Computed example of a mutant assay.
Amino acid sequence: MTNQLRFSVLVLPNVPWPDLLRRCRHVEELGFDSVGLADHLVDWAGGKGPWFELWSQLAAIAQATTRVRLTTLVAQIPLRNPALLALQALTADHISNGRLDVGLGIGLEIDPSYRMMGIDNWSAKERVARFGEYVEIVDRLMSQEETTFQGRFYKVDAAALRPRPVQLPRPPIVIAAMGPVMLGHAARHADVWNSISFAKTFEAQLDETRQRVAAIDASCARIGRDPTTLRRSYLMFDPTARSSGGKIKYYESEETCRQMVEQVIALGISDIAFYYPMLEEQQPTFERIARNVLPALKAAHG
C-alpha cells in the first residue's frame, strides 16, 4: 500500500456531554487525523452511563473543531432508512466543511437497541443482503443529481438531495466488513475498508486480519479493481481491557504501542484507530504516543 498513514481515535459517547466534547477537542489538539463516533441507542456492552445519538453529536463536534476529520465508526443500517442517512451525511458534510467520512456497517444482533426501539432485529444473513442495496442508494444519492432505485429491500423514486456535497463527488465511504460477502461489498463500494478483530490475543488478531487482507485483495481482483485504490482501516481492540478494569495494553508504554502498530502496518493497513483511554492513569502515555510515536511512524512509513 502506498497510502500515507493516518491515525484516529474512537471516542465513545458514554460520558457527560462536556467531557465528550473535551475529548474530541483533545484528539484534534494532539494531531490525530480523525475522530471516530459510534452508533447505538444505548451502550450495547451494558454500561449504564450516558449515550448520545450519532449524527447530533457529530454536528456539534464539527462546529467545535476545525481540522480533524469526523468518521461514523460505524453508522448501522438497521437504525435508518438509507435516504435519510444520505441526507444526514450530506448535512454533516456541509456543517463540517468537508471533513466527514461516512462509515457504514450492519450492526450487531446482540445490540439491545432493536428490542428497545421495537424494530426488527434482522439476522446476520439478512443484514448482509440488505447492505449491498443500502450502500448503493447512499452512494448514488450523495453523488448524483437524482436517483431512482428499486431493489428487493429498498427503493427511492426520483430522489434529489440538495445542495451537492462539499466533497465531490461525495464524502468518502468507509465500510466495516469481516465476512466474505461484506468484503465483496467493501471491494465494490468503499473508499476505505474497516475491520476489527475480537480474537483473544494480539497474535491471533494479526493472523485473522492478515487473512482478511488477502480476502479483500481477492475480492478486488474478482471485480477488476486495483486493490491499492482501497484504503485499509483497522480498529485496535484489546480483549483484556474489560477484565483489567479498563486498562488498554497499547497504552502501557510508547514502545509497546510502537511495536504493536508496526505489526499492523506490516499487514498493509494505512488507517489505524485507537480507543480513547478509559483510565485517567493512561492519559499521559496516550498523549506521548500522539506527540512522539505516531509522527515518527508517519515519517518512517511515508
Results as ranks from 00 to 15, higher is better:
168 L>K: 15
119 I>G: 09
89 A>G: 09
178 M>I: 14
134 Y>P: 05
91 T>W: 04
156 V>Q: 07
137 I>W: 00
210 R>T: 00
98 G>E: 08
94 H>P: 07
216 I>Q: 01
128 V>M: 05
206 L>N: 00
121 N>E: 09
107 G>Y: 01
169 P>Q: 09
218 A>L: 12
126 E>S: 01
94 H>Y: 09
206 L>I: 14
88 Q>K: 01
128 V>E: 03
151 G>M: 04
197 S>L: 08
120 D>F: 08
93 D>V: 11
199 A>T: 02
211 Q>V: 12
106 I>L: 02
200 K>V: 07
212 R>A: 07
190 A>Q: 02
191 D>M: 08
124 A>N: 00
199 A>I: 00
184 G>S: 13
184 G>N: 13
96 S>K: 08
226 D>H: 07
220 C>Y: 07
230 L>P: 03
171 P>M: 06
230 L>R: 02
152 R>Q: 15
198 F>R: 03
211 Q>E: 15
220 C>I: 01
193 W>E: 06
166 V>T: 11
218 A>P: 02
145 E>A: 14
190 A>E: 04
147 T>Q: 10
213 V>W: 02
103 G>S: 04
187 A>T: 05
203 E>G: 02
87 L>A: 08
140 R>E: 15
163 P>C: 10
142 M>L: 15
117 M>S: 12
95 I>M: 06
153 F>S: 05
135 V>T: 08
169 P>L: 12
109 E>L: 09
94 H>M: 05
216 I>T: 03
146 E>L: 14
228 T>W: 06
147 T>G: 08
214 A>D: 12
122 W>K: 07
114 Y>D: 04
210 R>Q: 12
188 R>I: 05
137 I>A: 04
218 A>T: 11
192 V>R: 05
141 L>F: 08
170 R>L: 11
150 Q>E: 14
203 E>S: 06
86 A>T: 01
137 I>R: 02
142 M>I: 14
225 R>L: 04
169 P>C: 12
167 Q>H: 05
132 G>R: 10
210 R>H: 14
135 V>P: 01
138 V>I: 10
219 S>K: 10
116 M>W: 08
211 Q>D: 12
124 A>T: 00
192 V>Q: 08
99 R>Q: 10
216 I>K: 00
158 A>I: 05
168 L>I: 10
126 E>F: 01
98 G>L: 04
93 D>L: 13
167 Q>V: 12
194 N>D: 05
150 Q>R: 15
118 G>H: 12
206 L>M: 03
192 V>F: 05
209 T>S: 06
86 A>L: 03
124 A>V: 07
109 E>I: 12
201 T>R: 02
167 Q>G: 09
186 A>R: 02
187 A>S: 06
151 G>R: 03
118 G>Y: 12
156 V>D: 05
93 D>G: 04
149 F>E: 06
217 D>F: 07
223 I>V: 12
101 D>Y: 07
219 S>M: 10
92 A>F: 07
